[in-house]
Design a protein around this nucleic acid. Sequence first.
DNA 1: TTGAAAGCGCTAACAA
DNA 2: TTGTTAGCGCTTTCAA
Lengths: 330, 330
Amino acid sequence: MSRAKPVSPRVTMDDLAKEAGVSKMTVSRALSGNPLVKPSTRERVCKIAEVHGFRVNVAARNLRQRSTRTIGVVIEMTPSHDRSMSEPYPLSLLGGIMQELTSNAYNMVLTTLPLFVAAPPAVDGLILLGQGMNEDAVESVQRAGMPYVIWGSVDGNEDHVTVGSDNVTGGRIAAQHLLAQGRRACAFVGDATHLEIADRLRGFGEAMVDAGACVVGAVPSAFTQEGGYQAAQVLIAEGARIDGVFAASDAIAMGVIAALREMGRSVPHDVAVIGFDDAPGAALFTPPVTSIRQDWDRGGTLLAQKILALTKGAKPISETMPVQLKLRIS
Amino acid sequence: MSRAKPVSPRVTMDDLAKEAGVSKMTVSRALSGNPLVKPSTRERVCKIAEVHGFRVNVAARNLRQRSTRTIGVVIEMTPSHDRSMSEPYPLSLLGGIMQELTSNAYNMVLTTLPLFVAAPPAVDGLILLGQGMNEDAVESVQRAGMPYVIWGSVDGNEDHVTVGSDNVTGGRIAAQHLLAQGRRACAFVGDATHLEIADRLRGFGEAMVDAGACVVGAVPSAFTQEGGYQAAQVLIAEGARIDGVFAASDAIAMGVIAALREMGRSVPHDVAVIGFDDAPGAALFTPPVTSIRQDWDRGGTLLAQKILALTKGAKPISETMPVQLKLRIS
DNA sequence: TTGAAAGCGCTAACAA
DNA sequence: TTGTTAGCGCTTTCAA
């Protein structure tokens, strides 16, 4: 039994109004629960709306109310199967954002920078995930002329509101962890053109120097296991004598570990490896990967709270979130 | 230097028209690249628009064009850190959808069922991820009176377009794999109230029976490692003598393996375990988890293609996608 | 408690 | 090549 839907000529409030013998306005009030309308009227109108399967035209409402109750989230690239745990910004950041937007009855539209430029969605504000290597991202978002917040490095730029983890301290913690194990010849693997990664490297280097040690190598790497694998090979090929590695992400760390092992170095015996993010999977790896945990969930919540505040004319401030050592085996 | 933005009284096409000494219409045409406008006029208009930082009001355009170039994706629950690899529908399904929508210049709004009901976003069509245990989902989406497609079990219901993996065959393959290893006493772990999971169990059972074996136990489980862990304990506590387990997802499989090991059963020696999804992490687990791979990416692409086709008045058909054994150690 | 008027800002359709 | 007219469907504002 196929209940075919005559989707075509949507019924409008005008139609309902005629049928109910009231004005369009009364229909609008009745359906939106305005207490001014007489209960009997409301009931009648609602029943007629129900019968006709009426849905308000959201586009029309958005135009009239000058608000879409929708926030845009600009992500840098499209997630895919192989990358799902290796992206710089994981699902859980989106999860935090979504949680908070949802509980404020806001919708979330996902977009990429090119799409945002080519086909801007109707939104009241924007969350930009990552400053990116190019300043394009921030600039394009600024051009849109609407409120926005950024996930990334808090850089004291008063122009915009930023939320991010304390990457510098994260780097320091990684260094202290390795130093505490007696490691002295440590390398860094990760793409430091990325602002957040640069912060991690900076903190790492500072703490090393503070302890009279130093970073014996820094190799760029994509945010993937494969990237870490290759970077470790480069590191060893260069003849670096290392007993510790700080990887910019857990996926990278896993790749590094795999490469080290293939080259006959045991982890953590010969080389200790610490990652970043506390990605799901880090704990399952063999050996379980020691990591610096970011609170993605709270990050997402903060981003959403701040963009909502901005759309309401408030002036939220940038915020840096603490990170935490997750001690495991590697 | 803070270039504060006077966000307030947005400039409209009317304003530009006055300044350029042309009509609103010409401004609209010029900015949308309509070839009818004289190049010199277009240039003048565009320059003025640029100077004023003009952005079209997308809500107004949406209303007028009766299209939002946006597709809604209804997900069952909010993703979070712990669940990121254990959800029934992972990031990569969204990735496939996003890829396809993006290349058609469509935006994607993520929503949940309650939010969709409470604050419907302005969209031209819907993708529903999962039929859910409650029929609510499908019904709520139908009520919206707009085109939709569903990810899940293709059930011959002509009312809607569905895309999904061939779960029945997936179950058969799992059975054949275990049987080929000489396993005869196999159990199933997973929530069979979920339509797709029920299909997997059905195929599994059929193939077992075909081979003269049978399913010695079926324990429900949430889509998490924790769920699998508990289910395996139940299974053993019930005294089941098993040498094989088919888990409804890889996360569940990992939990099952962990529990079996703690109880002194070795995997795969005493008990072989096969999962489903080929989740990232399955290959990294110890032992690497044998799995049935779903092509999430293609699934997402198909969903997007079909919903776009529907919004254009075409009549796409439901589609079932093949699955594939990923042979590993477990 | 209800209604009438007046747009929100844009673009399809037709006219010039 | 440009302009005029007429809404898209809703809600704000003001009047009754």
